[in-house]
Amino acid sequence: MGAISARGLSKTFSAKVKPEGLAASLRSLVKPERRLVEAVRGVSFEVERGEAVAFLGPNGAGKSTTIKMLTGILHPSGGRAEVLGLDPSRRRVELARSIGAVFGQKSQLWFHLPPSDSFRLLGAVYELDRRAFEARRDELAERFGIRDYLDVPVRKLSLGERIRCEIAASLLHSPAALFLDEPTIGLDVVAKREVRALLEELRADEGTTIFLTSHDIGDIEKVCKRAIVIHHGAVVVDESMKDLKHRSLAKKLVGVKYARPTAIELPGLEPVKRTADAARFEVDTRAHRIEELLRALVELGEVEDLTVEDESLESVIAAIYEDGAGRKE
């Protein structure tokens, strides 16, 4: 059963345009010029219940705008969205009871109050009865390891502790779908790992649909099973993480270091980096056989070190961003 559906979703903003200079400022006072900016252009995708999807794109691609339309914050200029069977722009309040949202840059916890007070207020916001609220709060406190600082004002918590509390707060009402926008921004590696594990556990245990945007490849790899990439407001890739990772297998990074200076020349393959005794190649495995390449490198001289690496997922995603619509599938 579908959890999230976007069909031809688009959002256009009207932005004021003003060339530089005082004269332009004065002209703009009398006759302001505006131009339409298409933040999202006909985005379509479906997300099943219980799926964990990464929603990716470079800055300004339209990720946050899409999430805001899916959660009812913004009204689409065109197309249709449906989340858990509801139209977010028409039935925002009803939808808000069934979804949770974590925006890494926006807190829903009260800065001067301990998380326990914010949790209590959120219990009232979501109309949880006292017993159900306390049971859920205790369960989340246990699972997220936040029991010890539930009574400490948020301003005194570390960022990692705060984010854990933020996620716990967004789960108090047991949402069927969770939207996360950069949830691990600013966290150290340990805190990031903990947050990812918690999200994975949540999906497995409660079947929560996870819709995640992040610039952190680790978040995407660890939490999501599918990736949707948008660029310039349109979907350019929608495939499983397995397939996305497979793209990285199509390219190998081969490094070689010789014991002494060697003329490193291979027919049909130019190194991306070369010194007197070392070189690094990016090899398209569809055009070159790795085995033959390695044999040729060994035959060139006395090898001191030889490495073969897959292209990183980060590079694959960066290439998709750079290619933009050119790699649309």
């Binding site: 959660t71 009812g72 914050i73 309040v93 808000a96 925006f103 926006k106 807190s107 916001v125 109309e127």
Partner: peptide
Amino acid sequence: ELDVYLLQPKDAFVN
């Protein structure tokens, strides 16, 4: 900054 209020199941004006 209205986002946080629009994400909650309460009337945004009152909230």
